[in-house]
């Protein structure tokens, strides 16, 4: 069983939701980023998503775009992202997922990327602009290297598509909470339970919800209906605000800890799945 699946099972037994934290690799600079990753782990995140910076990301809002641009000016190449992943893996045990656009891994070579990611201790990869229709080659090389392949679903994905995506996904299914780009929002969408329910009807794989989730109230509410909540832009913004301050790692750890505490027991003692 993959490290990702094992973690979701363990959480389900405890009735907890998973807290998944996204940061952009190399943001605000590679050294600080290494400290941030450890702080995320120590704050209690169940899974870390490390973003591979790309010059032209279609799904990202202003905060993550700017963080990626900044990381690119620090020469954060895919090869360096893999080095950062390996350095993190040497220190901590929690599941690590890379989130990337397709072109950087195409240029790296799909097969070489899967091999090197697995060697670096990465557990899974999300390719944000690779729908199942185009994913044949990637899924094959990822499977050959025991990497989980996480795919996304949107509120507009029709039932036949949901089926196709959940069948192909391993590790977990990433449910985009609303139409639009990444970025912190004040409110969760009102139809979130319906949305997750429609996916739940077609799979027993864990479902994590992301996009617009930024506060402990949100992670608590999401984990009442789903198996995990992804927080990205809110953490990236905190890093932006606190960069250069001696308290950065502490602030990140505290914020992650608040987000995590809200997910505890969210699913009730028997879990839901």
């Amino acid at each position: 069983m993959s490290r990702i699946s094992a973690r979701f099972e363990e959480l389900a037994r405890a009735g907890d939701g998973a807290l998944i934290v996204f940061v952009v690799a190399g943001h605000p600079d590679p050294e600080t980023n290494a400290e941030v990753l450890l702080a995320v782990a120590d704050g209690g995140a169940d899974l870390v998503e490390l973003g591979v910076p790309f010059s032209d990301p279609l799904a990202d809002g202003a905060v993550i775009q700017a963080a990626a641009q900044r990381a690119l000016t620090k020469q954060m190449t895919p090869a360096r992202v893999l080095q950062a992943a390996a350095a993190f893996r040497a220190e901590r045990d929690l599941p690590l997922v890379l989130m990337t656009c397709y072109n950087p891994i195409c240029q790296f070579g799909l097969s070489a990327f899967a091999r090197d990611a697995a060697a670096a201790g990465v557990d899974g990869v999300i390719v944000t602009d690779l729908p199942p229709e185009e994913a044949g080659e990637w899924v094959e090389v990822a499977r050959a290297n025991q990497l989980d392949t996480v795919f996304l679903l949107a509120p507009t994905s029709p039932p036949a598509r949901v089926k196709k995506v959940v069948d192909l996904a391993t590790g977990f299914v990433y449910c985009v909470s609303r139409m639009g780009v990444t970025g912190a929002r004040d409110e969760l969408p009102a139809d979130l339970a319906d949305l997750v329910g429609r996916i739940r009807g077609q799979t027993s794989k864990p479902i994590a919800v992301g996009f617009g989730i930024s506060r402990p109230e949100h992670t608590a509410e999401v984990c009442r209906v789903a198996d995990g909540a992804v927080v990205g832009s809110a953490v990236v913004s905190l890093i932006d605000r606190e960069q250069g301050s001696a308290g950065l790692a502490r602030e990140v750890r505290n914020f992650v800890n608040q987000l995590k505490r809200a997910t505890r027991g969210a699913q009730g003692v028997d879990g839901r799945r």
């Binding site: 602009d129 996304l152 507009t156 029709p158 139409m179």
Partner: peptide, 12 residues
């Protein structure tokens, strides 16, 4: 060619 977009663009 093809369609390489986030899932949120597939339906539109």
């Amino acid at each position: 060619g093809g369609i390489f977009v986030p899932e949120t663009l597939m339906a539109p």
